[in-house]
Simulated scan of single mutants.
Amino acid sequence: MDPNIEIIKTSGEKVKFSIEKLRTSLSHSGADNELVNQIINKVRDELYQGISTKEIYNRAFALLKKKKTYFASKYKLKKAIYELGPTGFPFEKFVATIFTYSGYRAEVGKILQGHCVTHEIDVVAYKNEETTIVECKFHNEEGRNCNVKIPLYIASRFKDVKQYWDSKPHKSNLNEGWVVTNTRFTEDAIQYGKCIGLKLLSWDYPKEDGLKNKIDRLGLYPITVSTLLTNREKQFLLSRDVVLCRDLIGDAFYLDHLGISEVRKEKILNEIKPLCDS
């Protein structure tokens, strides 16, 4: 393989191909070293100058799926988050669930009064007499990052709500504002968040505790990771507030509404059950 092979990211940026990055993403799927090496060797043989990251992903995904759908489901997690669109509301519910499984009581789409105006907050979370407000920034297109304008805007909303909150008696303190995105934050967005005291959560930030880490740790995989459900079936389930794989396992009768056969139903459930147990 030419060591100077350049690949094109979704953003259009050209970077050198990294075997280690591919190895890491494949290892996160649960595949063992032997399978990871097999796939790396096959993908490496098919590389050419200017190949897109999407093409590399599709090839690795197909090879994983051929071996075991469970591996493929975990591997496609990032893409599955994008599939929660196009409205972004399933993503808000998804974020609320992450807070719930982290020990909070969470509500979606709550109206809070500010000092100047009212605000519709994506997620309001409560824990130990502390209240946290969370704004979700969802993109259904890869390559779009959250720049500094987003935390600037959210910080001003938080300040307005907090000013009113602190002027009235409440059972809890309003102590934190969060911005959660399914993409990435730019460096200046991260710098501003740190400076102002705004919590930021993205696909890979904070390091070792980003969205991906939390999903893996809590076993909160969205139904869109399934390689066996069609896009139409996924959208039907999302419209019925079935966002997580564990939701579907608990309410498998939704698959009956879709007219899915017992044989296929069993395959779908067998694919997603290991994700919830991980």
Score class of each variant (00 low, 15 high):
D2R: 14
I8D: 13
K9T: 11
T10I: 02
V15E: 15
K16S: 14
K21Y: 05
R23K: 09
L26G: 04
H28S: 04
H28C: 00
N37G: 04
I39F: 04
I39T: 02
K42Y: 11
V43S: 08
Q49H: 02
I51H: 05
E55A: 08
R59P: 00
F71A: 02
A72Y: 06
K74M: 08
K76C: 01
I81F: 05
P86Q: 14
A96L: 10
A96E: 14
T97M: 08
T97L: 06
F99I: 01
F99Q: 06
Y104I: 03
E107N: 09
G109F: 11
T118D: 15
I121Q: 06
V124P: 01
V124I: 14
A125H: 07
A125Y: 04
T131M: 08
E135H: 03
C136H: 12
N140K: 15
E142Q: 13
R144C: 02
A155C: 03
R157A: 14
R157K: 15
D160V: 05
V161P: 03
Q163T: 15
W165L: 10
D166H: 13
S167T: 14
K168G: 03
H170C: 10
K171V: 00
K171G: 15
L174V: 01
T181Y: 07
R184V: 02
R184C: 06
F185C: 05
T186L: 09
A189P: 11
Y192D: 10
G193S: 12
C195I: 07
G197M: 08
L198Y: 09
D204Y: 11
D204R: 12
D209H: 13
K212L: 00
K212E: 13
D216L: 03
Y221V: 01
E233S: 00
S239L: 05
V243P: 00
L255H: 06
L258Q: 07
R264I: 05
I268N: 01
I272L: 04
I272E: 09
L275Q: 09
S278M: 05
